[in-house]
Design a protein around this nucleic acid. Structure first.
Length: 212
DNA sequence: GTACATCGCCAAATTACGTCA
DNA sequence: GGTGACGTAATTTGGCGATGT
């Protein structure tokens, strides 16, 4: 906690005096920023009425204390909100009003639900993207390891068989299946693997298994 | 045309409550 | 029953475009 606000200290607002809730001691500075004031001012009389009649959102405890209570949406409410979210992830004022009336919630609650829902969706997407990137990274690491090994083999081959030095590099190629150098030996008597056709590059993102 | 104020909405960060293991 | 982790409702803050003056 940062001391800005605490559930015990901040009086829970009631529908009709929400207009002035920002005057709470812990948000006095920000409370008069244009954003917050206008936020409350924009409640139409109809909205305020909806808030008044909402049975699920009583801000006052049975014993009369003003502790902030957190609403738990019912399954039906959540389902309807989810359904609505599938159709459109943002709401225009009319949709918000209608949904709020239908769910017996305050329009503000519907709005908040959609905001949080969008945030959750984004978070989930980010996590998925992260996973994909991780896999790509692993794939590239493997590919890099393989290429390093291949390079090492080529180097040692070069040392062992100076004959290679007399061949233009472009005439050397690698068998895609066995990963061995072509261009010499019995199978390559006339036409070595055609390196000139095209370089041997594979995209490990789109086809990781294609890397020979 | 432009500078300014206000509004309305949103994203991001954070807080805090309810639930469950 | 107490506790920590987790999910999520609610709040705060700040940015931005639209609109009116």
């Amino acid at each position: 906690m940062d001391g800005k606000r605490s559930g015990c200290e901040e009086p829970v607002v009631r529908a009709h005096d929400q207009l002035y809730r920002q005057a709470s001691p812990h948000s006095a500075v920000s409370s008069f920023s244009s954003g917050r004031v206008k936020r409350e001012r924009d409640l139409s009389s109809e909205e305020v009425e909806v808030e008044r009649v909402s049975s699920r959102v009583s801000d006052e405890d049975e014993d009369g204390t003003n502790a902030r209570k957190k609403l738990r949406l019912t399954k039906e409410q959540s389902a309807l909100l989810e359904e609505s979210f599938k159709q459109h992830s943002t709401l225009n004022p009319k949709q918000k009003q209608a949904l709020a009336r239908q769910l017996n919630l305050r329009p503000r609650q519907v709005e908040v639900w959609f905001q949080n829902r969008r945030a959750r969706t984004k978070l989930k997407q980010t996590e998925m993207d992260c996973e994909i990137l991780k896999k790509c990274c692993e794939s590239l690491t493997d590919e890099n390891r393989r290429l390093q090994k291949e390079l090492q083999e080529l180097k040692s081959l070069k040392m062992a068989q100076p004959f290679y030095m007399h061949m233009p590099a472009a005439t050397l190629t690698m068998c895609p299946s066995c990963e061995r150098i072509g261009g010499v030996g019995e199978g390559a008597s006339k036409i070595p693997f055609s390196m000139t056709a095209k370089p041997h590059f594979y995209n490990s993102f789109t086809n990781p298994s294609a890397a020979c």
